[in-house]
Write a protein that binds this DNA or RNA. Structure first.
Lengths: 257, 257
DNA sequence: GTCTATACCACGATAGAC
DNA sequence: GTCTATCGTGGTATAGAC
């Protein structure tokens, strides 16, 4: 509505900013309402007033950053599909998947430099509150990208593509969550001209490698089996279990192996 | 150490089992002492008596599973280096890195079927209690594997290898932490003979692809740059920035990563 | 409609009784 | 070794000030 004063919207934003920062630092379960409210310089009850609950607050934090990212990803995939049609290849799809995040990261929006770190945390947080939200809100876009990858990589079966995409996306999330993103990216871009393109190229090259790697057949598997059966290797970790189920009373566990 | 009765060791083990299960489900910060003790059917204070603190408890939980894994990894790398010497290749190193985990996963030890899930959680948990413990206790083995990879992949620079290893290990952890591992892996292995070898081959092929992918140069980067500048793509997510104060400010403080 | 003070129950941790 | 009582802190809910 009208709301002449300028304080109300500011309070919500300050809470969101503080919560986001604490979320990136230690994850959802780690951040406390008292930490959030004191960092935002608002009253403890302000969170409950504006968001209702801690779960709803993290949903708002996630939506604020992930909704625009999701929309840009879809828009970019649309643009590539319109431009290339049947000639769409998997590099195009990867660009549509990565470029929006890289652009946000390289923008001068507040907190943009921490965006990749935030993205990694959001995708790796163990809390069901976070995982369920992401898995229910951005499934549609994920399905679109899955379908696009399937079109550009017809040699992969549905299950195999799922395995590789899971692998690739997990890799990206984990790398970003590590927080080394800054140092890593700076290293590769310090003497280059087009930062955005080079970051894209680096990430995409690894992804393409994981997506296009030849599928191991029985013969490759048997090679690994031969390695595993080498003398001095075969017995390592071989669980020769004579004790049925209950492990002996030793403080330092010798069993398991 | 006398402990004639059978209860004391049992109490510790039950606590460890309950804590491990809850850790896999929701991470470190999510699991509560009351959840743990009630699941283990012991008194609330039993945890503090046997382990001292919640942090020490999770350290014990991690050590119980990760120490044997770490030892087996080192032993297997030793065996491969003895067998192959200078002819060691990066597939060998990958087998030494993965096979111990796969063997534990496929053993009939209690909770072995959840081992990969546990491993993923341990490597991705956001809590400093977990991260610091892992990074301080298993650094030595990580260094050994890094050195082994460096020998078998001399064409990669130290920094590039670090980036790719980070990528590959993050992928593995994230895939495992996802929990879909069981269903996914079962799908690919249900009608095959040598499960262990095939799982190894699958994981290794993706890792090898990520480790051996050609490093993108300026020309590849410019191709991606061209994609990003297509009509209908260039303006998506472009944060119309007129203020270009902090451009390529090389704030790279730490030289070597 | 916006914000504050405060009370409520569950959490981790500790001391001391048994 | 095991348990109970207790303290400070976590998320949540409400009454009331502006």
């Amino acid at each position: 509505m009208v709301t002449a004063r300028l304080s109300p919207a500011d309070t919500k934003t300050r809470i969101l900013d503080a919560a986001e920062s604490l979320f990136v630092s230690g994850g959802f379960d780690s951040m406390s309402m008292r930490q959030i409210t004191s960092a935002a310089a608002v009253n403890l009850a302000a969170v409950n007033y504006h968001f209702g609950t801690k779960d709803a607050l993290i949903h708002a934090v996630l939506s604020r950053k992930l909704d625009p990212l999701d929309a840009q990803r879809r828009a970019m995939l649309d643009a590539f599909e319109s431009n290339y049609g049947a000639k769409l290849n998997c590099e195009h799809v990867l660009v549509a998947l990565f470029l929006p995040a890289v652009r946000i990261f390289r923008s001068d929006a507040p907190g943009a430099d921490r965006f990749l770190h935030f993205l990694g945390r959001a995708y790796t947080d163990p809390s069901p509150v976070v995982r369920d939200f992401i898995q229910t809100h951005y499934i549609e876009t994920l399905g679109r990208f899955f379908f696009a990858f399937q079109r550009t990589l017809p040699e992969l079966s549905r299950e195999d593509l799922g395995f590789r995409l899971n692998f690739a996306m997990g890799a990206l999330s984990s790398v970003l969550a590590g927080g080394n993103t800054h140092r890593l990216i700076r290293e590769f871009t310090q003497q280059q001209g087009d930062h955005e393109a080079l970051i894209l190229a680096r990430l995409s090259s690894l992804m393409v490698a994981a997506l296009k790697a030849p599928l191991p057949g029985p013969q490759e598997a048997s090679e690994f089996g031969a390695m595993a059966n080498l003398p001095g290797v075969a017995q390592i970790g071989q669980v020769l279990v004579e004790t049925t189920e209950s492990v002996p009373s030793s403080t330092a566990s010798a069993p398991t192996t």
